[in-house]
Nucleic acid binder design. Structure first.
Length: 234
DNA sequence: ACCCAGGGTCATA
DNA sequence: TATGACCATGGG
């Protein structure tokens, strides 16, 4: 089987296992997605939800102009459960100021994806993955999100060689799928994360009569073991 | 007591 | 350009 076809095989297998992942990124509106994307940096979603709950209780989530007026200590208190709370308070405020300056969702939704992406990257605290989370789940743009799980999956299936950078990973997935589709990308990313968190121990066949298997990629390999990890045979 | 989380920035070499 | 320190709380 051609390597790139296996990308579709994995998608179909995971899709069969976990369904359509409807509303995997829970949020009432686009701005809430953006807040979640910043809070989720290197943090488990359960912790993010606690912070979101605190924000929602105080009715801070509805709009950025509400958020920037909040007392800083109060905002830090809300974000505490999500970790890096001082840092994330800073980042969230920086993001809100940029967002308002540019005219909010109705204005930004008109921007072409590439311009929106580079501008997002210019906001302090917004890196490539956070920017793509926002583009994909808030602005509904067809960008494939690359996170740690995606890299591990790609590495363990020997889809890639060496250590490509973020954009190279992204290009690889988008070209392998050969279909620029926001719904597909959102679904695939959700499936990768859900399957990782399931901590599936046993290798399992991805399709009938196909030797492709997916091992657990929840945690990173220890440095001492890195050289011993075998790529899954195809 | 570890290890890890739906990362990003900044200082060094 | 490529590592490393740092950010910080919470769950397994």
């Amino acid at each position: 089987m051609p390597i790139k076809k296996t990308v579709w095989a994995v998608y179909h297998a995971l899709s069969k296992e976990y369904g359509d992942c409807k509303n995997w990124w829970p949020a009432d509106h686009a701005f809430e997605v953006m807040v979640g994307a910043i809070l989720a940096q290197n943090t488990s979603w359960a912790c993010v939800e606690k912070a979101i709950a605190r924000l929602r209780e105080r009715d801070y989530l509805f709009s950025p102009d509400r958020l920037i007026k909040v007392n800083r200590v109060d905002l830090e208190y809300c974000l505490r459960p999500s970790g890096y709370y001082r840092l994330k308070t800073q980042r969230l405020l920086a993001y809100c100021h940029w967002y308002l300056k540019e005219g909010g969702y109705e204005a930004l939704r008109q921007w072409p994806t590439e311009l929106l992406r580079v501008t997002l990257l210019g906001v302090n605290g917004i890196g490539p993955e956070t920017a793509d989370d926002i583009l994909l789940y808030a602005f509904k743009r067809p960008v494939f999100v690359i996170d740690a799980y995606t890299r591990r999956l790609g590495a363990r299936l020997a889809w890639v060689n060496g250590k490509p950078g973020y954009l190279a990973w992204q290009r690889w997935f988008e070209q392998a799928l050969n279909l620029s589709d926001q719904v597909l990308y959102a679904h695939y990313h959700a499936l990768i994360v859900i399957h990782a968190k399931a901590r599936c121990r046993e290798s399992k066949p991805v399709c009938d009569g196909c030797v492709l298997r997916v091992k657990c990629y929840y945690s990173a390999c220890r440095k001492s073991e890195k050289s011993t990890v075998e790529p899954i045979s195809l």
